[in-house]
Design a binder for these strands. Structure first.
Lengths: 205, 205
DNA sequence: ACCTGAACACCGTTCAAGT
DNA sequence: ACCTGAACACCGTTCAAGT
């Protein structure tokens, strides 16, 4: 019966994710989270505004690290890696995909991943609204694929992810005007050339 | 206080959809549906298994007619028309997109639309698993676009739908092997030739 | 500031009847 | 068969205190 339970938002979010894994999204309850933490219901409410806020923080936590590790430079590979990491993240917890589109994450990790995706589409040569739409489209597609990915790992599931990524990459590539595509390629080539060469001096001077 | 209220599943689903329009998905309650029908709560439960079943039937009703009216023969146009109709259907009711991915519709209209989309992808030249994946992808994308479509009609919303459809059509086209694409084109050309010519008789007989 | 105990106004679902 | 009335076991959220 200690007065101080040493509670924190971080511990609450972690416990809520564990409860999600065990009980599923439909059975996820503020009371169950409190019970799991060995604490009174209102202790949770002291640290967290309410259930929607908790769900948003859970969704955001799920996306942690999706855009952390080093990414390939070429935009198609980068898009594939980002999308695959999102896919893995959503499958790492039970009902992860349902959680994501129930409470779309405005948190830092969600925005960071969205920015990384939009940046990748920009690198492909899309303009700003196009890149934003492409980033959303990737999230829609991956969330859907993850949601329908049954708990029993069917062999066709990886094929569906691959197919989806192929369609998206080819579709985005086709939306890039020829001039923008060439400029994006030049950008990439310039970044790949190991030492950026100084402006060449005329031979005789 | 009439004993017979003349209740039916159809009236209940219609009332639930009206209640959805007025109150939104979060406030949609079995009791509110009953009240709207001027009937006791358990009258609803007599005709409907439970709330999940009602939501599924609502989602299915939302999809009615998406694949009814005549469709263009060429697969890109057909895909665009089907997807646009789905988009319109999801926007025709408040929280329509959220309803759809909360209770994905196994009902007849949902399957019918899914079959129409898969058939369109098959007409493009995709094999069976590819066509199924493409059909799902279209639904994921349109649902996402519709969900993020704010209640205030922004001018950029139609542009986002167009962009999304462009990416999907181009991406699907790129996934079709060259031989399958030519066969699909031949199929279409054969169907467009107005009178199917009888097998030509040898000149002399 | 941090946590408890108790309550409020709901909710989905079910049970026992009525006609 | 169709509908009512009343209840059960919850739920998210809040209020009034304690230390």
């Amino acid at each position: 019966m200690s007065q101080r339970a040493g509670m924190s938002v971080g511990r609450i979010v972690a416990a809520a994710l564990d409860e999600l894994d065990e009980a599923g999204l439909d059975a996820l309850t503020m009371r169950r989270v409190a019970t799991r933490l060995g604490v009174q219901l209102n202790t949770v409410y002291f640290h967290v505004t309410g259930k929607p806020a908790l769900l948003a923080m859970m969704a955001d936590a799920l996306l942690a690290g999706c855009d952390r590790a080093p990414l390939p430079l070429a935009w198609p590979d980068r898009l594939r890696v980002l999308a695959t990491r999102l896919h893995d993240a959503l499958l790492s917890r039970r009902d992860g995909a349902r959680l994501l589109d129930l409470a779309h994450p405005d948190g830092p990790r969600g925005r960071s991943l969205g920015d990384a995706l939009a940046g990748t589409a920009t690198a492909a040569g899309l303009d700003q609204p196009g890149a934003a739409a492409a980033a959303r489209l990737v999230v829609y597609a991956i969330t859907g694929v993850s949601r329908d990915h049954g708990p029993g790992r069917t062999t066709g599931d990886d094929a569906r992810l691959t197919f989806t990524l192929d369609v998206l990459v080819d579709g985005i590539a086709a939306r890039v005007p020829a001039t923008a595509a060439r400029r994006a390629e030049d950008d990439l080539a310039r970044r790949l050339r190991p030492p950026p060469p100084a402006t060449r001096r005329p031979r005789g001077s």
